[in-house]
Design a protein around this nucleic acid. Structure first.
Length: 517
RNA sequence: GGCCCUAUCGUCUAGCGGCCUAGGAUGUCACCCUUUCAAGGUGAAGACACGGGUUCGAACCCCGUUAGGGCUACCA
């Protein structure tokens, strides 16, 4: 098989709007998008909102925001429209009902009136669910209501029960013997024994379709050429294939993508059990958390493209345009992968470092403003070179250089001011002498500061690290900060000197205090 | 429990029967640079899950075991 498509490429991303976009969903969308662009095809966004219980009115907007942030513009779908709309499934109910009835009329599906045999709610939690299945199996109880007794009702019986106003669902008549052989682009042929299959519900009691029906009908009507979806759908693929065959429609190519697992490889990455990094920090799962955390869309896209697929040439860093040029289905991995967050950190840092300072400033501005700082563009541009190699995410600028944008200054305590192998008296002396020099300075530029202060290390018998460290903490209030002289330059002479004096005061009062026992 | 998928350094991956004494990246560690933190430079440690086949030859093909993941809903 080759991934040269035999018909116009039309792929879709079909999320269920239950919240913000999941990071795994973004990757699925991305693979679809890359493939569409690679072959000059169309990328379609379809909203699968057929579960009224999980309806979230804000989700659609958030979802589209996330896709747009990542630069995945859809050619057809909500807002942009298209020739095969509507693209929201809840607006297509009549279509699904029509086709469900067509299946019934043609003997491929049937009305099931046994609403009272509906199984109790399946536990949502994965472990609990698994446990429930195990227990049922141990008691030799049927796991589900198979086979439903309405499968072989006569037309008269059906008409009679319908006339009585009994509610029903429409179930698919799955073949009860033989096997269903399906083709997955990545895995090849997969076989399922039909005896292990059940008659899935296509149309619910409320008239809404299930995913199974809706996606087949829509993919047909929208002329989808490739169904690229997460591999958790593989077990229901035989159902879907049988549906295509029952309708007599030409099937698209199905591509079951590997999924992303928690960083420790245990379980699918999920927001319900948020994964943690090695420091115990929660790793975001939703795209919006990454936006809020200051990740760059270009880094995110690069990162995600590298999981389950790789660029080749041993290149880790590439643009989306470059990825489009050589994206192919044949090199998609079949195995799931643990979510490698640390690579995202690294890549994000790489993108920050190679960015034009002006561009970085533009992206940093809203972050600072969100933190409550007023930002002068020229001033920010002076700060950018000092933070560019030091931040891995946009938000890192707050702890690193937030003090430059704050009105109020939080002075350091004496123990922070005192550097390694120094005492309070020595530190005070260093500050005193520095103050004398700096007060007299006419030129307060980085180079001049360096030149003026440097000789002091020798006369005080200190290392650069010690003396500059004292000044750093005095001026920034932090032990980790932007470089000392550059920072003083930006802060200006008056502010710098005021802070040095303040530090000196802190040390003097600590010297006067009796040493605690 | 049943069914399905998967298995190369900690992690993401290259490899598609001889180019493999298994390559890259990240992470880790060491050293250099150094004004803290970074960045940068140099280097090190680190993997074909296991057992059978097939073959002159196997990380690559087949079978089994083990492990992981998924599905088993009137959720997608």
């Amino acid at each position: 098989m080759t991934d040269r498509p035999s018909r116009p490429v039309r792929v879709r991303f079909a999320p269920s709007p239950t919240g913000s976009l999941h990071i795994g969903g973004l990757r699925t969308a991305l693979f679809n998008y890359l493939y569409a662009r690679r072959h000059g095809g169309s990328f379609i966004l379809r909203i699968e909102d057929t579960d009224q219980k999980r309806f979230d009115p804000t989700a659609l907007q958030t979802l589209m925001e996330a896709l747009q942030w990542a630069g995945l513009q859809w050619d057809e779908g909500p807002e942009v429209g298209g020739p095969y709309g509507p693209y929201v499934q809840s607006e297509r109910l009549a279509i699904y009902q029509q086709w469900a009835n067509w299946l019934v009329e043609n003997g491929k599906a049937y009305k099931d009136f046994n609403a009272n045999t509906r199984p109790a709610d399946v536990p949502f939690d994965k472990e609990a669910r698994k446990q429930a299945y195990r227990e049922k199996a141990a008691r030799n109880e049927p796991l589900t209501i198979t086979p439903p007794s309405c499968r072989d009702l006569t037309p008269d019986e059906v008409a009679e029960r319908e006339a009585r106003g009994e509610s029903y669902v429409i179930r698919f008549k799955m073949p009860q013997s033989g096997e269903t052989i399906v083709q997955d682009y990545i895995r090849g042929e997969v076989r399922f024994d039909n005896q292990t299959q059940q008659d899935a519900i296509l149309l619910k009691e409320d008239g809404y379709p299930t995913y199974h029906l809706a996606h087949v009908v829509d993919d047909y009507l929208m002329q989808i050429s490739h169904v690229m979806r997460a591999n958790e759908w593989l077990p229901s693929y035989p159902l879907h294939a049988q549906l295509w065959w029952a309708f007599g429609w030409e099937m698209p190519i199905y591509v079951h993508l590997p999924v992303m697992l928690n960083p420790n490889g245990k379980g699918k990455i999920s927001k319900r059990n948020p994964p943690k990094d090695k420091f115990g920090n929660i790793i975001p799962v939703m795209v919006h958390d990454y936006i809020a955390a200051g990740y760059l869309p270009e880094a995110m896209v690069n990162f995600l493209t590298n999981i389950g697929w790789n660029f080749g040439d041993e290149r880790e860093k590439f643009t989306q345009a470059e990825a489009i040029e050589r994206f192919d289905l044949d090199r998609i991995n079949e195995a799931n992968s643990a979510y490698p967050v640390e690579k995202l950190q690294w890549l994000n840092g790489e993108y920050i470092r190679e960015m034009e300072p002006l561009e970085l400033a533009k992206r940093l501005k809203p972050v600072l403003e969100k933190a409550g700082y007023e930002v002068n563009a020229d001033f920010l541009l002076k700060v950018v070179p000092l933070v560019q190699t030091r931040i891995k995410s946009l938000n890192d600028i707050i702890p690193m250089a937030g003090f430059l944008f704050r009105e109020e200054f939080i002075p350091a305590t004496a123990d922070l001011l005192i550097q390694k192998k120094m005492d309070a008296a020595q530190t005070a002396m260093a500050l005193q002498r520095s103050l004398e020099i700096l007060s007299a300075l006419k030129d307060f530029s980085t180079a001049a500061l360096q030149e003026a202060i440097q000789p002091l290390t020798e006369s005080l018998g200190l290392t650069n690290s010690q003396l500059f460290g004292v000044l750093r903490v005095a001026v920034t209030g932090q032990t980790i900060s932007t470089p000392t002289f550059e920072t003083m330059d930006i802060l200006g002479q008056a502010v710098s000197i005021a802070r040095l004096k303040q530090a000196l005061e802190t040390l003097r009062s600590s010297l006067e205090k009796p040493i605690p026992a």
